[in-house]
Write a protein that binds this DNA or RNA. Structure first.
Length: 1129
RNA sequence: CGGCCUGUAGCUCAGGGGUAAGACGCGCUCGUCUGAUAAGCGAGAGGUCGGAGGUUCGACUCCUCCCAGGCCGACCA
């Protein structure tokens, strides 16, 4: 009884089609469809489609966004891609899990919470308490999930929010531990150091991301954005050589606080240095000569005398005295060999500043660190993360690094170790939060060894289909080839803790925990006691170590990219959840992922690295990389500039389908940047409105046409119509085209070439509306006259034709809507609901529960499609000709002559002669193969064919071809050959060009030439006039706002004795006018007074006055107002 | 500074060694309705294919360099 009785075709007699009602309000319709999906649980059923019946899985990984911000166009775009592809594969019968994920850890949320709590940096967070801080993060991180869900659902994206995953779930985090433990067991994890920028006020290292957020100034010279400019001391220091009495190495630095930690001096092995004597003081020193000249030019060093020249390499290994005494013990190793305080070689040394001799403090510079590591130097760092010196540096202990500068300089000055003392203004990174200068220092970090696996990573990458492919081979491939070991640890709070416990007495005693159970066992806790893995829970867990100390967890947490890279396993709590274990293992490379270009070094990379290391497989088979969406003006979208329309507004104005179609048709789905707008000032989303016109309305109009007539006619679809095999050419043609579209779409979906989908569909809509329906429209309203037909045989033939017309259009609409369902989920659902569900024909309750249409090759007829294409092309040429000659299609013409040289085209034109006559309003068509009278021939060499054959002789032959005479051209046109420069040319070798002869109504396109006979005999002229009158009356009707079915009495007066008068006097033409304009009667002669609706016009200079009087419909009304009828009589 | 991408009509973008340069295009101009659709249909105008060299019989297309824009990354003792 109820509408909701689902699934099976309701009965043998389908219900009637509902005619369209009112305006098409897409956003409102979409809301209704959302409600339909919700009330019938269709989304849930579609998401689970095939879960239970062992369908082959199509594995999709959804990259987790941060829930700390609201979704923007980038998310809508990625969301659309992530919806279209899974929808397609679901319809193809695969089971597609689509779990939404949330990235909960990491700096964005920590920063947010720091700001909200007013607690900044390590010291303050420690004081505030990690448990409270993390609790705030936990409470705050999911604040926008509701908004996300609303927007995602409104976009028509189906994704499972109920069975979502969060990177902060204990199950997720435990899998991350498992992943890490696998790497640990494979010896891919090691502890190292990395020189990182540290914000001393915050007591924490900063990421590059955070450094980039710091103050940025434009350089006054280069105009480039850079760090903030500041003044620093500029010191040139003398280091005394131990193997040469009274000789010094001069080195330059802008960071005096690193001088106590100096352990080496670096020279470039291939740079030439000079040994000099300062004339005034007699001091002997080494320096790079160009730099010396610079010092002298600035008057920092007096006159000198050159003693020798030598390569940097010759200085390498020479010992010098420690500048300050604090670490002098490192002069020698235990075996007595020289350790620190010697000259080393380094290629990075430059001669554009300083002295060409570089002070090395391995803990405080990335280059220094690399050199120190290569030279086996110790790592000395007397600073803590707050930049405070420890006890090892004598009088400087307890001082902040920058504050110690002055004391260090003073001491060096006292000890006469300064060659020069100056001030430099330079750009230097500052903390984005405290605005204090950053300090670079070596920090202990945990690495995953990646470099050793580069080759394998590249090999496995070759198994991935990248869309577009250049991202995979270029950007991503290059990145893999140069991959560096991955720094996995972060000195933060809200993240998955590294599961390493270490003895506080013997740092070499470490254990990596791979599961909760293992931790409970180690710590002597009962099973099930640990149900959260964040720092506040885990850090207090300790146990005694072998060395009599305590095993404590190291303080670091994971880089949150490690967590998202672990997502394939962690979202299913692999390998701990026995129910999911097989699923994960059996579906290991995901079939599909999609994210933005910015994830090349992000998620794409971490997925790939982890999957390669753990399973020696790529993590995914197919990936669509999308580009950045810019505002219409080409700038970044900016809330401040308001240079883009609010997504919600766009959806509420034009609907989600149009936005989806717009996004997915752009080059942005091929990793290129996209301007969101149809022109630079489009900040309202006009571009999306265009998509409504292009992608929605055409199919809607076709649907409208069908249902309007079906309702008027009482036609109702049947199950047989879905299998209909019509006999007529027009019907077979459109079904063939529809099958072609289905095949084309299938291929594009399968190859992830989403940008081709909408254009292919739009081409079909053009065929459907502007040929199929236009040519066939009279078939749908023939019914009413059919009743009048006296001949039963004719009547039944017409009935059959009408039935095929309805059935074919019905079938075409259903198929197209179904094939477009992944892209236009709402609109295709609307069509499907109206055509299939309302009528009780649908075997499914929703188009999204249907199978994707499969191509039926028996419906395809390429020859027929080609024939119609020829016909349409010919008609277009002839229409252009009419246009050019200024003869409206309204005016009938006697003859169209078509000269055509291909039998195939000629046959097509003959076959569809009736259509051509109708389209062009001509009475006869003549076909000929001889166009000599119509056009002049010219010839041009076919370079493509001849070029390869002739090579250098091409030019001469081309010139000869251009000079061929008429006779030679006619020979060629007839299929013969000519000889030029000793080459026999024929057929494809030469392109014949046809130019219309002057003075004739001729047009050419390709090898089709058409000519119109513009000399219409009097009866055609009168018919044309009649149609002109119809046109004027129709215009007046519209002006008067009449209903299309309003009957009228027509008064017409032509004041001259011309064609017009003759036309109006012709009974046949009067009948034509009357039937076209719904005139019950045509009254010629002077127009009676008092008629309001009246117009004067001229037709070919003959004046015409017309007037309309609405007539009472005498049919089924028995109204009593007879006033108007009087006028009619 | 490096890697990758982009530069074609007023705008948004396709294309691809062949002498006549393409659109579901948008915009503009003109034409065209009323028995589905004016949010429709048709036509026209509009181009030194970023610049300079090179390869070639032939370059918008391939190569080199340069210019401009974008994304990502590196560096700054």
């Amino acid at each position: 009884m109820s509408d909701s009785s689902p699934h099976k075709p309701a009965s043998a007699t389908p219900r009637q089609l509902r005619p369209p009602t009112g305006q098409l309000d897409l956003p409102a319709i979409e809301e209704e469809i959302l409600e339909l999906w919700r009330s019938r649980g269709i989304e849930a059923r579609a998401l689970r489609r095939g879960e239970d019946d062992e369908r082959e899985a199509f594995v999709f990984y959804d990259g987790p966004p941060f829930a700390t911000g609201l979704p923007h166009y980038g998310h809508l775009l990625a969301g659309t891609i992530k919806d279209v592809v899974p929808r397609f594969w679901t319809m193809r019968g695969r089971y597609v899990e689509r779990r939404f994920g949330w990235d909960c850890h990491g700096l964005p949320i920590e920063n947010l919470i720091e700001n909200e709590l007013g607690v900044h940096g390590r010291a303050e967070i420690d004081a505030y308490g990690v448990p409270k801080f993390n609790a705030a993060c936990r409470a705050g991180v999911l604040r926008f999930t509701k908004e996300w869900e609303t927007v995602v659902k409104r976009m028509g994206r189906w994704v499972d929010f109920e069975d979502d995953y969060k990177t902060m779930d204990a199950s997720f985090m435990e899998s991350v531990w498992w992943v890490f433990r696998q790497l640990w067991d494979k010896s891919l994890i090691y502890e190292g150091y990395r020189v990182q920028p540290v914000s001393p006020a915050l007591g924490t290292p900063l990421s590059n991301f955070e450094v980039a957020q710091g103050p940025q100034e434009k350089d006054p010279v280069t105009r480039k954005e850079g760090h903030k400019r500041r003044q620093d001391p500029s010191l040139t220091v003398r280091f005394a050589l131990e193997d040469e009495e009274g000789a010094y190495l001069w080195a330059w630095t802008t960071t005096p606080w690193t001088l106590p930690s100096n352990l080496a001096l670096a020279v470039h092995p291939e740079v030439e240095y000079v040994k000099i004597r300062v004339v005034e003081t007699g001091e002997i020193a080494y320096i790079e000569p160009g730099r010396l000249a610079d010092y002298q030019a600035r008057d920092r060093v007096g006159a000198t005398e050159e003693l020798a020249r030598l390569q940097g390499a010759e200085l390498i290994g020479r010992p010098y005295a420690p500048l300050l005494p604090f670490f002098a013990d490192y002069r020698q190793r235990e075996d007595g060999s020289r350790w620190a305080f010697r000259v080393v070689g380094a290629d990075y040394v430059t001669t554009d500043s300083g002295t060409g001799i570089v002070h090395q403090a391995p803990a405080f510079g990335e280059d220094d660190y690399a050199v120190g590591k290569a030279e086996g130097l110790p790592l000395i760092n007397p600073l803590n993360l707050n930049g405070i010196f420890d006890e090892s540096v004598g009088e400087f202990a307890g001082l902040f690094a920058k504050d110690a500068d002055k004391g260090i300089i003073d001491r060096l000055q006292r000890e006469e170790k300064l060659v020069d003392r100056d001030v430099i203004v330079h750009a230097y990174p500052h903390c984005y939060r405290t605005d204090e200068p950053l300090l670079y220092m070596a920090i202990s970090t945990w690495f995953m060894a990646v470099e050793q696996s580069r080759e394998r990573l590249v090999e496995l990458n070759s198994q991935i289909r990248w869309v577009p492919d250049h991202v995979g081979s270029g950007r991503f491939g290059n990145w893999l080839e140069n991959a560096r070991d991955w720094n996995l640890s972060r000195n933060r709070y809200w993240g998955t803790p590294l599961p390493i416990w270490r003895c506080d007495r013997d740092p070499s005693d470490m254990i990596c925990i791979g599961s909760v159970a293992e931790l409970e066992e180690r710590a002597g806790l009962g099973p099930g006691t640990i149900n959260d893995l964040h720092r506040e829970t885990i850090d207090p867990i300790t146990w005694p170590s072998k060395a009599g100390g305590t095993m404590r967890r190291i303080p670091e947490v994971f880089d949150c990219w490690f967590e998202s890279g672990s997502m394939p396993y962690a979202q299913n709590h692999y390998p701990f959840d026995p129910a999911k274990k097989d699923y994960v293992e059996n579906n290991m490379p995901a079939d599909f992922i999609a994210e933005g270009l910015d994830q090349t070094r992000g998620w794409f990379y971490t997925l790939h690295v982890l999957s390669s290391a753990l399973f020696d497989r790529p993590a995914f088979r197919n990936v669509i990389v999308n580009g950045l969406i810019l505002a219409a003006d080409g700038k970044k979208m900016s809330k401040r500039l308001k240079n883009y329309p609010d997504p919600t507004l766009v959806i509420n104005n034009y609907g989600a389908d149009a936005l989806r179609a717009y996004l997915i048709s752009s080059q942005v789905v091929r990793a290129e940047p996209m301007r969101f707008g149809k022109h630079a000032k489009d900040t309202t989303g006009e571009c999306v409105r265009d998509m409504v016109r292009v992608a929605i309305l055409p199919l809607w109009n076709a649907y409208n046409f069908l249902t309007t007539y079906a309702a008027a006619d009482g036609w109702r679809p049947s199950a047989a119509d879905l299998e209909l095999r019509p006999s007529g050419d027009l019907d077979r043609w459109i079904l063939s085209r529809v099958q072609g579209l289905v095949g084309e779409l299938t291929q594009e979906y399968e190859q992830y070439a989403l940008w081709n989908i909408v254009p292919a569909y739009v081409r079909l809509c053009d065929d459907l509306n502007n040929w199929y329906i236009r040519r066939g429209r009279r078939r749908y309203w023939r019914a009413k006259q059919a009743g009048d037909a006296s001949d039963d045989a004719v009547a039944s033939a017409e009935d059959r034709d009408k039935a095929e017309a309805y059935g074919t259009l019905f079938r075409a609409l259903v198929t197209v809507a179904t094939a477009m369902a992944p892209v236009l989920p709402f609109f295709s659902e609307l069509i499907y609901q109206r055509l299939m569900v309302d009528t009780g024909l649908g075997s499914e309750e929703s188009v999204h529960l249907c199978d994707f249409p499969s191509v039926d090759p028996s419906l395809r007829d390429p020859a027929l499609e080609a024939a119609v294409a020829h016909v349409r092309a010919t008609v277009a040429v002839a229409q252009a000709l009419r246009e050019k000659e200024g003869v409206a299609v309204r005016r009938p013409l006697p003859t169209l002559t078509v000269a055509v040289h291909s039998d195939e085209v000629a046959a097509a034109l003959r076959h569809f002669e009736a259509d051509i006559l109708g389209e062009l309003n001509v009475k006869t068509i003549e076909l000929t193969s001889d166009d000599a009278d119509l056009v002049t021939l010219k010839a041009k060499a076919n370079f493509k064919v001849l070029g390869r054959r002739l090579g250098k002789r091409m030019k001469a032959v081309a010139a000869g071809v251009a000079e061929l005479d008429g006779e030679a051209l006619r020979t060629l046109a007839a299929g013969g050959a000519v000889e030029i420069e000793g080459e026999s040319l024929s057929g494809d070798d030469i392109l014949l060009i046809r130019e219309p002869r002057a003075g004739r109504a001729v047009a050419s396109e390709g090898d089709v030439t058409v000519m119109l006979d513009l000399e219409a005999p009097p009866e055609l002229v009168r018919e044309g006039f009649a149609r002109e009158v119809v046109n004027r009356v129709q215009n007046l009707r519209k002006q008067a706002d009449f209903e299309v079915s309003q009957r009228i009495i027509l008064f017409a007066q032509s004041s001259a004795e011309g064609v017009l008068a003759a036309t109006l006097a012709d009974d046949e033409l009067r009948e034509l006018i009357a039937s076209e304009t719904l005139a019950l009667e045509i009254v010629t002669g002077p127009i009676p007074g008092g008629i309001a609706i009246q117009a004067e016009d001229t037709i070919d200079d003959e004046p015409l006055t017309i007037a309309l009087l609405p007539a009472q419909d005498l049919g089924d009304d028995d109204d009593d107002d007879d006033d108007d009828d009087d006028a009619a009589s």
